[in-house]
């Protein structure tokens, strides 16, 4: 932790939040875990469900590595609490392939070398799945703009955009 708390802690009676059973529907499977309200969806996935494909790159909504799909929409899982997502359909990178058959975006990322270290990759791919579903990207410039919430420090943007363009050209949501 960075610093001392700004607010007056002593007044708050250091105490622990109550744990409760929370059922999350992740990649089509319901999983019940005991956790306190202060657990982010990202930490619930990584630390409580061992779904470590979703990455923590900043924990503050400033990088996009934690992108998952909730009810079909891409969000930053670090900024929502797990308990708030009870009852919602959560799809993570682990849920995109159908058995051995990769999602077209996953295939395109491999083909276009749309990554280097691979750490932002799950977030990029989930974000791109969301982008395709939104259907707002008409041009290359649109793709770049609408993918700008996913930082790639290795600088693989050129290839990421090519991979997404290819999937769009091939009809986008073929995998559904």
């Amino acid at each position: 932790m960075q610093n001392q708390a700004a607010f007056e802690i002593s007044a708050l009676q250091p105490a622990l939040p109550p744990q409760q059973a929370v059922t999350l529907k992740v990649n089509g499977q319901e999983k019940t875990i005991k956790l306190a309200p202060w657990v982010s969806l990202l930490d619930a996935l990584r630390e409580y469900l061992q779904l470590t494909g979703t990455k923590k790159g900043c924990d503050h909504g400033q990088c996009g590595a934690c992108t998952v799909l909730v009810n079909g929409k891409r969000i930053n899982s670090c900024l929502t609490l797990a308990i708030m997502e009870e009852g919602n359909e959560i799809i993570t990178i682990e849920g995109l392939a159908k058995g051995d058959e990769l999602h077209p975006l996953q295939t395109a990322f491999i083909e276009h070398d749309a990554y280097q270290c691979g750490y932002c990759t799950p977030g990029q791919i989930c974000s791109a799945v969301g982008l395709l579903a939104e259907g707002k990207a008409k041009t290359t410039a649109d793709i770049k703009e609408l993918m700008s919430g996913n930082i790639c420090r290795c600088g693989a943007y050129t290839n990421i955009v090519s991979a997404i363009e290819e999937v769009i050209q091939k009809g986008g949501q073929a995998h559904e």
Binding site: T52, T92, I93, E94, Q106, E111, Y115, G118
Partner: peptide, 11 residues
């Protein structure tokens, strides 16, 4: 293509 590509795109 990267030999570790599949691991990277599937998490």
């Amino acid at each position: 293509s990267r030999v570790d590509g599949r691991d990277k795109v599937t998490g």
